[in-house]
Design a protein around this nucleic acid. Structure first.
Lengths: 241, 241
DNA sequence: TCCTGTGAATGTCTTCACAGCC
DNA sequence: GGCTGTGAAGACATTCACAGGA
């Protein structure tokens, strides 16, 4: 009735989960291309480098906007900028590692985080014997100091590297301290309020999945020794078979 | 014409990727239930403990066979046995870690692997300066010795913990040495022949995904400060939002 | 002519809802 | 009455295939 709509809300295009999970892979590829002075890239070539197919690349990138040029391809630098912006990677996000056991200590020393925009800003542990000791360039703080550390260091992300038993308590403390992004390495199912994001990495779980496919193929070969290996799902979390 | 079929081939039921990825979570839950003497479990309760919904649990378990009892639930011990068998976890699978830098060393010391059936049988590195040095209970071998180590130690799985640049070469060497299950920690896209299984864990990638959701919510709040946080996908790789 | 952007088709996964068995 | 097992419906993701702009 009242004339036309004021403006199309481009900020509401929802990006599918599956696409979000691939954006960092494209980003890494673009960084490499940019480093070697490549100016433009076709969906076909980008697909090859990122280990997916070209139709997927085009559909994924189309969720970010129309940043390509027909007949030419994508401008590497421009796409890199847009993607960094979309991923919120135009600034660093300091992380806190909770639990300085074997895994936590390893992650603290692992350079891969800082290198890619996630500097380790603090280490905390519940064990008072560890508090005050130094690991790499960090002194270990007590977990009770979390709210203070979060405020002082502008910490954005919490990494849980404790045993499974303490993980839910740690998650609760992180949320209480104002952290809304959590990466969980403990082999436990955690619950966080809906406004928080939680992702998990379970190292043994990955090995168990590999074990499944190995077992299955061994069983198939035994049942059917004359025939080659059965068709199996390629791609998925990465070619798996 | 010729009477009926000889037998239904139950070994051919294909288990969906997504289900396979959840089996280890159920397995872990069942191990805990068994440890605390729980004899039977309903799909509802198992779902709650595993952080999924009951329909999914029932569908997932149905791929393994009809191991439940209507009106009662699943026998914990029996289901545990069947699931271990299906996942190929009735025996240990020795692993080799390739690349003893920060991450590789951490993984070597991380107890979580052996604990869950994947003993670290060998460490190898390309750097001759590291060869012969001892880390934890292992002496580091040269990567050229891979075929020998695989044969001698019965190694089933290779873990790549090298920098991205060397990762494809390592994958090729693992495959050449007879390894068909590979877990890649290097931030690089790898290719393996179809008979091999490859999975990847990219730590920074997980943080980047968290950054995306944080960024998106911040943008939504700025555009729309009166309204609460928008609906976001729960569950998925774990509640993500 | 080349390559993107996208509707439509296909395939996969999740959820519903209830028949069937204990 | 309670809970599993599973077709069917619905949601989501991938791939196809081609219109349309450079």
């Amino acid at each position: 009735m009242l004339g036309s709509v004021v403006a199309v809300d481009r900020s509401r295009r929802r990006i599918p989960e599956a696409t979000v999970a691939r954006l960092p892979v494209y980003l890494r590829t673009l960084v490499e291309l940019h480093a070697e002075q490549t100016a433009t890239i076709s969906s076909e070539r980008l697909a090859e480098l990122a280990g997916v197919n070209a139709a997927k690349v085009r559909k994924d990138l189309s969720y970010l906007g129309s940043y390509g040029t027909r007949g030419v391809g994508y401008d590497v630098e421009y796409l890199l900028f847009q993607m960094s912006r979309e991923l919120g990677l135009t600034k660093d996000w300091p992380v806190v590692i909770v639990g300085v056991g074997n895994l936590g200590a390893a992650l603290a020393n692992y350079g891969g985080f800082s290198e890619r925009g996630f500097p380790v800003a603090a280490l905390v542990d519940a064990d008072r014997a560890k508090v005050g000791t130094v690991l790499g360039e960090h002194r270990i703080h007590h977990i009770d100091d979390l709210p203070q550390l979060v405020a002082d260091q502008g910490i954005a992300i919490g990494i849980i590297a404790t045993p499974a038993a303490g993980a839910q308590d740690v998650a609760d403390r992180l949320v209480a301290a104002g952290i809304t992004s959590i990466l969980n390495f403990a082999p436990a199912v955690l619950t966080v309020p809906p406004q928080a994001s939680l992702r998990k990495v379970d190292l043994a779980l990955e090995l168990q999945i590999l074990s499944f496919y190995r077992q299955r193929d061994a069983a198939a070969d035994a049942a059917d020794p004359a025939v080659g290996p059965p068709a199996r799902p390629l791609d998925a979390p990465e070619s798996v078979g």
